[in-house]
Design a protein around this nucleic acid. Structure first.
Lengths: 207, 207
DNA sequence: ACAATATATCACCAATCGGTGATAAAAATA
DNA sequence: TATTTTTATCACCGATTGGTGATATATTGT
């Protein structure tokens, strides 16, 4: 009647820690970061809040560990996949921006994290921003800077505008249901309009 | 020894209401909207919190009235001023975007309000968004739509990307001190890089 | 001077916040 | 089986939250 090896003990520290991390994600998704209260997290995890202090040290450390546990950019990083075309990063940039526009729209937790980075100055959020920066630096320094030479900063500014525009529009579309510049950012029509504009602007930049 | 007409009574309802509205602004500026607690607002105003309920009906109504009392876009609206050049709105667009980039950067309360609109779905915040939409519709329908004709939606999408990018970058620059795409958005050099990029993209769009 | 009214304060409420010491219960070790 | 250690719960704390009824004080009208 008894299981042998697969049996997991009812009291398991690692499993409980994971429950707390899952609770953070769930609350972040449903209520946003302002809803991340110790009592709520514990209730959502189905465990006593004391364990948060025992296992993580406190609420802040738990949240930090959650953020660290998420590799929000991994899905975007290895998206291009295809062979690197020697066009100064034009194809790569377009595909990267399109992937971001899609990825951020679908990933509501990432939206909350991005928003969080605009409000608080949490250390673990800095790490995410640095990830993005370092990842971008790779693209800039190795591909686009050599291509645009003295205009390399111009290109960086354009990408900065497009990336941040993508962030804002995706978040805006999630929390608001009204239009932006007359475009419905939730409809496929509105979204492909944005995608076309991105593609258009990159094309023009490389002219 | 006594003043005659100019003397303001110590107890003045309108003056007290204004004190609360000022307190909301002050807290919004220093702590952001998460710091807008009734107790803090009353303490900042130097009055009893009961008056918030007597005069406004509650915290939410007070905040709504604050938002309504601010015409956040007035400074941007009548900025262009100059004679309307018949270039399909090219000059107008460039100047409008430049003005927004500058205005939002300087107006920290507006930044908090914009952020707020990405988090909550408050009715009074909708009004601000609608203001922006209606104001934009004026530009689109009367100037750029006739100019771009079948590509009018493309133009709207481009403006949407640039406007929202401007919002995001300005807010990002205020709360974070690290770079974005390698650009220091607080320095005049970094900011003029963005401005040049905006101007460049608009030019290319009108080609 | 007196009464009526508008303005503002005070004391208090229940609910919730983050946080902790004592203790129970399960699991591992002997 | 008995003991020790790990895991989890419980009861409680002080501080803060939003909100209100009773009361005091200032202003106005007679």
């Amino acid at each position: 009647m008894e299981q042998k090896t697969v049996v997991k003990s009812l009291r398991n520290k690692e499993k409980s820690k994971q429950k707390f991390l899952n609770a953070v994600e769930k609350i972040l998704h449903t209520k946003g970061f302002s809803g991340l209260k110790v009592n709520d997290i514990a209730r959502t995890a189905g465990l006593d809040k004391k364990l948060i202090y025992n296992y993580f040290g406190g609420k802040d450390e738990l949240i930090d560990e959650y953020i660290r546990s998420q590799d929000f950019w991994s899905n975007v990083k290895d998206e291009p996949g295809g062979p690197m075309i020697n066009d100064g990063g034009k194809t790569f940039s377009k595909e990267m921006l399109r992937a971001q526009f899609d990825h951020v729209f679908k990933n509501k937790e990432l939206q909350k994290i991005l928003l969080w980075g605009l409000i608080e100055n949490r250390k673990s959020l800095k790490k995410l921003a640095n990830d993005r920066e370092e990842n971008g630096a790779l693209l800039f320094e190795s591909i686009t800077d050599p291509h645009f030479k003295e205009n390399s900063n111009r290109y960086r500014a354009i990408i900065a505008l497009l990336i941040s525009g993508i962030y804002y529009l995706d978040i805006y579309a999630t929390t608001n249901d009204c239009t932006f510049c007359g475009l419905d950012l939730k409809s496929t029509a509105g979204r492909s309009e944005i995608e076309d504009a991105i593609s258009f602007l990159i094309d023009k930049t490389y002219e």
